[in-house]
Nucleic acid binder design. Structure first.
Length: 568
RNA sequence: UGGGGCGUAGCCAAGUGGUAAGGCAGCGGAUUUUGAUUCCGCCAUGCGGAGGUUCGAACCCUCCCGCCCCAGCCA
């Protein structure tokens, strides 16, 4: 009972409350939402919030959600972005079925409606230059002044508008404006532009048009045409709502959608601005839109973030109207939450230190049984080769350990996971004093890593890879793209983290990794979750660390990096 | 100084007149062949501030403070 209320509360927000109320009151009988991206860049985490909201609400209330490309500005939009957007929405786990649209599908209807407004004396063609319009618009505190063309005869506006469409005028020479109120406190109502002249090729309509509708003029009417009931957008459109409503009230539209606004998503140590992301790509700060450090869906996919994790994250964040910046750690939690359950376990050594077991026969190789998932017996097991010479992690040995260090040090005994207990007998150094090798002994009675008959315990279990059978691979470790939690979007270049990518050229991987299907997530025990990168070549895998494991020791020892990864 | 919004814990976020949900982070402790996972417990006498109404206020009223958005022929 208490659980039920808690669950209900968890999946509830002011948007869903409104939808429910509309249904209960009979104002709507079926819910229709839409996700309307502009194809001028790749989708990112912020879009994921909107996608989950729009598709989620439709799903929960038995309605439908449309995917609509908001393609009203051909100077910025590309087919390649359209393709990427569709791919990413599907990857996130949503389908639009037959309801795939473009604002450009409605260009003819929008044009007819513009004519309708002109005929009704509610729109006029303005010949002012862009600068003149800017001046006459007034300021935040001063009202604007009417255009000298505002009262020109309807027939003249009609004629001019038709000639605008007929390609008679160059870019920027005239616009069609709504006749509303140049003195409105809401600047969006000071005779907003409905159409501008843009001699540009459109990805879908080609050169059929040289005048294009503005966002404000196109959006609400597109919603109305599609029968959208709830048009959900972000807070900055709040003061566009009176304009959204004005069009719907002054045009013979087939339905009456309502716009509601919610706070966009912000996450610490990253930037969710298409402008900045575009500059990161164009400026070569990242390898592309799908760089694993990018907060784009494509970047996260390449990094190994499962779509379920993004959905889980968005659900935890919730939907409200307060501006907020969510801690990146919350996102990492969701990623681990999903990956812990789905990832099979493997062993890999990133910074190898050779360990020789003196009392283990030379040339002997044993196959040790290792569970693929300790919490899921159904995942089965695999065999891992073990021999006299193995690699362990350099960080797992300290010659002069502090008190709380549980791992290997001179004279100390630890467990090698699924193998044996070993004791460190000697530290071998090179001429420069660098530790190059550890000489150890093993206890045959601990085979499989089991506690010996005398009941001896060890404080630590280490991961390892047999030297002779190790597969070499490249491992890429990531940290935040930005050093500051709240990067300045106008001056971001200085705040890019120079250490956001660390390449481990020759990591030692257990042989099973080479045989793994690249699409399945993997946990390298004690190191984190990894995902095969598209840069992999036969015999030379490249793995991205999706996220590290929670690392209490790093916190205690002070080696925790800003990105939550562990220095290895 | 015009218009539109928003302020509940370090970070998200419920709550809409009956005495502050939940999650993340953090801190304890148990279990553990991953310092992981899992499991238990702790974590706002307080809801931006000050008044007021009321038996009772985070919720209602008044004033004040702070933050965000808007002056594209971008979306």
């Amino acid at each position: 009972m208490a659980d039920e209320t808690a669950d209900r509360a968890a999946g509830r927000d002011f948007i869903r409350d409104i939808v429910q109320a509309d249904l209960d009151a009979g104002r709507q009988s079926a819910i229709v939402t839409r996700f309307p991206p502009e194809p001028n860049g790749f989708l990112h985490m912020g879009h994921a919030k909107s996608i989950c909201l729009n598709f989620g609400v439709a799903e929960e209330f038995g309605g439908r959600c449309h995917l609509r490309m908001d393609d009203t500005n051909p100077t910025k939009e590309e087919q390649a972005y359209i393709d990427a957007i569709k791919r990413d929405v599907e990857w996130l786990g949503f389908t639009w079925g037959a309801h795939y649209y473009h604002a450009s599908d409605y260009f003819e209807q929008l044009y007819d409606w513009a004519v309708h407004l002109i005929k009704a004396g509610k729109a006029y063609v303005d010949d002012q230059s862009q600068a003149e319009m800017r001046h006459s618009r007034g300021t935040l505190t001063e009202p604007g002044t009417n255009s000298p063309f505002r009262e020109r005869p309807i027939a003249e506006s009609l004629d001019l508008f038709q000639r605008m469409r007929a390609r008679e005028f160059p870019n920027g020479t005239r616009v069609l404006r709504a006749k509303i109120d140049m003195a409105s406190g809401n600047i969006n109502l000071r005779d907003p532009v409905l159409y501008r002249i843009l001699h540009a090729e459109h990805p879908r309509t080609g050169t059929a048009w040289c005048i294009y509708p503005s966002y404000d003029y196109a959006h609400g009417q597109s919603d109305a045409i599609e029968g959208v009931t709830h048009s959900l957008c972000t807070l900055e459109f709040e003061d566009h709502r009176p304009l959204y409503d004005w069009f719907l009230e002054n045009l013979p539209v087939p339905s009456r959608p309502r716009q509601y606004e919610f706070a966009r998503l912000n996450v610490t140590h990253t930037v969710l601005s298409k402008r900045v992301l575009t500059e990161l790509v164009r400026g070569g700060h990242v390898v592309g839109w799908d760089d694993p450090r990018m907060p784009t869906l494509a970047g996260m996919r390449r990094r190994g973030v499962p779509p379920e994790a993004i959905r889980d994250f968005v659900k935890r964040v919730g939907v409200a109207k307060a501006n907020s910046i969510v801690d990146y750690g919350m996102f990492e939690f969701s990623v681990r939450e999903i990956l812990n359950k789905s990832a099979q376990r493997r062993m890999a050594v990133l910074k190898p230190l050779k360990l020789v077991i003196e009392n283990y026969p030379e040339g002997k190789v044993e196959e040790m049984v290792a569970a693929n998932h300790p919490e899921d017996p159904a995942a089965g097991s695999r065999m891992v080769p073990f021999s006299r010479e193995i690699y362990i992690e350099r960080d797992d040995f300290m010659e002069h350990p502090p008190k709380k260090f549980f791992r290997l040090s001179p004279g100390k005994e630890v467990r090698l996971r699924y193998a044996y207990f070993v004791t460190c007998k000697e530290v071998v150094k090179d001429a420069r004093g660098e530790i190059v090798e550890l000489r150890c002994t093993y206890d045959p009675e601990t085979r499989g890593g089991n506690t010996p008959p005398d009941g001896r315990k060890v404080q630590a279990t280490l991961h390892w890879v047999s030297a002779a059978q190790a597969v070499e691979g490249e491992v890429r470790l990531y940290e935040h793209l930005f050093t500051r939690p709240d990067p300045d979007a106008t001056n971001f270049a200085d705040e890019i983290n120079p250490n956001s990518l660390e390449v481990v050229a020759n990591a030692k991987l257990e042989p099973a990794i080479a045989a793994d299907n690249g699409n399945s997530p993997v946990q390298f025990e004690r190191l984190g979750y990894f995902h095969l990168d598209q840069d992999s070549k036969p015999g030379k895998p490249v793995l991205n660390r999706t996220v590290g494991l929670r690392d209490t020791w790093a916190k205690v020892s002070g080696t925790k990096t800003p990105a939550g990864g562990t220095k290895r």
